[in-house]
């Protein structure tokens, strides 16, 4: 399978390249009040609104420098869309595997965790949103 691969907190991850619509830099993300940590905010791009997912936050992975999240991947699948903020993009990899097996390996044996957009979306929407009284 052709994987769009990137690194989150030192771990190599990726999803099927066919879902990637565009990769952008320097987007201004609008933070949104009353959202969980995996939800980074909103971007308005070419007349469309996208939810931006902070994948490291969503996976509770510790990233030493969150300011590195300067690249934004627009992902489209089924009737859905989202933007995933990532730090380092590894590029496109051709690897043996499929979405059923959640890990595949590079030629040098490095594991790559395969993420399905639906899984990311369900994890994002499954969290608590709303005001919490302090």
């Amino acid at each position: 399978m052709k994987l769009f691969a990137f690194e989150i907190a030192g771990e190599m991850m990726g999803f099927e390249a066919g879902y990637v619509y565009r990769v952008l830099e320097g987007l201004r993300v609008t933070p949104v009040c009353f959202t969980p940590s995996g939800y980074m905010g909103l971007v308005y791009h070419r007349g469309e609104i996208f939810d931006v997912v902070d994948l490291a936050g969503l996976l509770e992975a510790h990233e030493p420098d969150a300011a590195d999240k300067k690249r934004f991947v627009i992902v489209r699948w089924s009737n859905r869309k989202m933007v995933i903020a990532v730090g380092t993009i590894a590029g496109l990899l051709w690897l043996q595997g499929d979405e059923e097996n959640d890990t595949c390996y590079t030629e040098d044996g490095r594991p790559v965790r395969i993420l399905a957009p639906d899984w990311i979306w369900n994890k994002l929407t499954g969290q608590f949103y709303g005001p919490v009284q302090v």
Partner: peptide
Amino acid sequence: MPITEPLSKVGLYSGIGIQENGDVSL
């Protein structure tokens, strides 16, 4: 523009506003 699915769960927002300069507000 309409509120997105995750943000509809907040229950406080009725839409997403785009200002003349392209800035976004809730």
